[in-house]
Design a binder for these strands. Sequence first.
DNA 1: GAGGTAAACTCGTATAGACGAGTAGGTGGG
DNA 2: CCCACCTACTCGTCTATACGAGTTTACCTC
Lengths: 262, 262
Amino acid sequence: MPVIPSGALGALDPTSDRAVFRQIADQLREAIDKGRFSEGDKLPSETELVEHYGVSRMTVRNSLSVLQGEGLVFSEHGKGVFVRPRPPVRRLASDRFARRHREQGKSAFTVEADAAGSHPTVDNLEVKEERPSQDIATRLGGPRRVLARHRRYLLDGRPVEFATSYLPLDIARGTQIAEPNPGPGGIYARLEELGHRLDHFEEEIRARMPAPSEVRTLRLAAGVPVIHLIRTAFDTGGRAVEVCDTVMAADAYVLAYQLPAT
Amino acid sequence: MPVIPSGALGALDPTSDRAVFRQIADQLREAIDKGRFSEGDKLPSETELVEHYGVSRMTVRNSLSVLQGEGLVFSEHGKGVFVRPRPPVRRLASDRFARRHREQGKSAFTVEADAAGSHPTVDNLEVKEERPSQDIATRLGGPRRVLARHRRYLLDGRPVEFATSYLPLDIARGTQIAEPNPGPGGIYARLEELGHRLDHFEEEIRARMPAPSEVRTLRLAAGVPVIHLIRTAFDTGGRAVEVCDTVMAADAYVLAYQLPAT
DNA sequence: GAGGTAAACTCGTATAGACGAGTAGGTGGG
DNA sequence: CCCACCTACTCGTCTATACGAGTTTACCTC
């Protein structure tokens, strides 16, 4: 029978004002931070913690739920509670949409994933005409209807982001952009072929906790936020030709940008 | 005695596989999403929910803790559970460190806050020499010791971010950069006066749940992630002259960047 | 009217128990 | 040897209860 590693966890301080479940959470957190439990390790079971601390099971569960909310641990029904591993992060560089990359003929996601040695997949592909939300319509200059390209990206089978691109119908309708497979280089390559030479992109970044549907789509663990990125592509005429709305698992990404000092 | 608004919440489905506390959370979430409870509104008390649904109080609390984890509601001891308002966000534009702003003589934070009509404060100012972490040292080219400028920013009394700037001692020691008040235009203005003309910045962005100390420093509500931003400033010689490590309340910010398409 | 106090409300913490459901390992039968 | 089953262990859900602590309200006293 597994036992709590001696010294890994201390005793409660009955004189402390701090709630018992917080003291237990503190000790577990400290043990994780100090490496006494490593990534992927199983924590002591609820029963073991109950016996070790002499408290009721709900108190122990309360402690563990604190750590789950902090994203430190996750639980698996029937197995145990484990230290959440930090998955490898995908670094999005600010030149990722540079024309030179597009001209290679592969999509940005695929190129990067291949370079990182992981297996990329695109999923849930759906392309249709829609009425845009107020926000999307405003960004695109107010069209009544748009072409929407929905998709989900996975790395080695793990969903890491899902995104929807919105394009004005006068640009996209009837072109290869309206096809499920937009061809080599992606829709940005098609836009340029159609005469919409791209000038720059604007990206807006927010972070927040996921809605339940986002938890399902990205198979998010408890305590993992999402990064919400909205990118607008402008052509050399200053027109917004595409808006891409992306939700990413925050534990899978680092975004990198370069800013001029001028 | 306050009563649950009729029709705001439905009944449970006993035939459903979905756990009772999840069904209750779903109904509350839907009521919030549909505006039947608005920002700042008080939800029905735990006791009222217990009576409405005919479940035990722990089940109701479980439901509410789900919504807290999603950042939808917050609770106040003795008062009730309330729909979390979306605070006004501060938009950080990608030109916020442009030289023309610096030459106005005020810090970026102060200028922006004034423009937005809110009252900025800087707090917890501490300037000292330190041994840098491995990561900071690497970014700065490996110095053994650095000057660290710690500070916290508040808007209208609310803490929104805290940051530490790290500078190599050979640049900063003995200059106004090592003083608590770095003078008009901030340390970037001083760096340029000292001959380190700035060329560009690199920013790395991550999002994650806050550590307990970050929750205290930023007075974060449950279910609010932080944005972790690491900025490195490079001079025209390509040398990293400063690294700024910033933790921001994610509900207070939207970051905006402009990317070239070239 | 002003003040203080008590009651009634809120959420926070903790206990003890029960049953369900998913997993893993061992045991036995084929 | 392999498969089926059983068992022990895991976390998930839910009940019922108790007391504490912060807030608000009402009332009573001065």
